[in-house]
Design a protein around this nucleic acid. Structure first.
Lengths: 240, 240
DNA sequence: GCCGAAAAAATGTGATCACAAAGCTCCACC
DNA sequence: GGTGGAGCTTTGTGATCACATTTTTTCGGC
């Protein structure tokens, strides 16, 4: 029962079903649609996606391979619980890789791109002032990845994306905390931009590293992790 | 036509065929069985493995996901050519992540493990003296990963393994160069061990970083990369 | 001899089926 | 009331088939 969802000529989604499944699952993971610890069975996901089990199976395997999902020895795959240790591990790796990306980008970025990034920072500040946390986080991501893309290092970019994916659900839950947090916990991208304009890549990298470590310390104190929650809520959301 | 290759009770390879295919392909990649740029079709690999196309397909996809293989837009997968830029990118990432692993391991290793690692270093020196490059590289890997495992950081370990996998074929080709190289190009693990015994994790990390950067600079000058070879040999090895 | 179009082969994708193992349910029995 | 096991359900795995697309080969024409 294959149902074409849109006119084949117009649609941009002529991608393989497996790719669509992968992206939708990935998006759902970032958005925190699934509860940590929830089992994702191939057939259930396939049904939710309206496809045969095959694309779902491949997509789930891909996500498990990049550790965005955990795999049981039986083969069953489930949404990982981000423990405190895992959060700190992800943060420690970020604190090494993202400054490296900044250093690489520093010698390649042009002033036009820096202007565009400055605009993103301004939009982020506006979003924060307007009390729109999800837009604020989106702009934050836009700024950083816009910069990382300039590094011209595709593998590094992929690894950083995987880290963000892993951290995704937790960070999404934490957005309200971030909004109501004291000023010292807010991202400060201005100094990074300033350093880059001066061509001081090393300094920009140090700024970012400090920012990540500051944010990690704050969240580490503000968040309650999966391994510290006595009872698991176990939400039953089958949508994908 | 499913042929059980060994007695089900005794064999340790009761793993899923997909897992076996994945490991064999991975091993083959590290050993440089495939020529860079060689296309690996699902059916050909499946035939070489003696299975149906399905496990081969999943295994190839997994390897492509972790960027151990390149994927064409058509879906065809091929052995990546390690360009100079890619080699330097991998090295730059290694120079950040592996020292981090050392730092994390520093506060957790016990002296017994350090003794065992010292033995590995001794074995490596012996292998070098005996002119056995493959054993020497094996011991090198054994030493470093033995240390990284102590970090208690599974994601980090997985990322480092992926980096080594990507670098694998090239490094394998380079083993003769490394053997005949001047002393300043040889790995020096002694100082790392010494620093760890003193509990100076930061110093050990700096040592390793310097070692990786030294090695990178040397290989960068000694090796001829895929993007710098005028004609591609295009070996036809179908074995898996 | 060389270029290009048509035919043929090969390839990736996805659906469906069969099967074995793991998990769960429910009821009998202690 | 608690426990254990039989039976059913669900799950992952792997094979096979059909189909559309891409790639290669081949052959005709310039």
């Amino acid at each position: 029962m294959t149902i074409t969802l849109s006119i084949p000529g117009i649609a941009a989604d002529d991608l393989p079903l497996e790719e669509q499944a992968y992206r939708r699952l990935r998006q759902a993971l970032v958005e925190g649609v699934f509860a940590p610890g929830e089992k994702l069975s191939i057939r259930r996901v396939a049904e939710a996606l309206g496809t045969s089990p095959m694309p779902a199976r491949t997509a789930l395997r891909r996500l498990a391979t990049e550790q965005a999902l955990d795999a049981l020895p039986s083969g069953t795959v489930l949404v990982p619980r981000l423990t405190r240790a895992a959060f700190q591990e992800v943060s420690a790796i970020r604190a090494e890789l993202e400054p490296l990306a900044i250093r690489l980008a520093a010698s390649r970025v042009d002033s036009g791109t820096l202007d565009a990034l400055a605009a993103v920072v301004a939009e982020q500040d506006a979003a924060r002032a307007a009390g729109r946390p999800e837009l604020c986080l989106q702009k934050d991501r836009e700024f950083l990845f816009g910069l990382y893309r300039q590094a011209g290092a595709p593998m590094l970019l992929g690894m950083i994306e995987a880290l963000w994916l892993r951290r995704g659900p937790l960070f999404w839950e934490a957005r309200w905390i971030v909004m109501g947090s004291p000023p010292e916990a807010a991202h400060r991208h201005g100094p990074i931009l300033a350093a880059l304009r001066r061509g001081a890549g090393e300094e920009a990298a140090r700024e970012l590293k400090a920012e990540i470590e500051r944010m990690t310390a704050f969240l580490s104190g503000a968040l309650q992790f999966e391994d510290e929650v006595p009872a698991m809520p176990r939400a039953m959301r089958a949508r994908a």
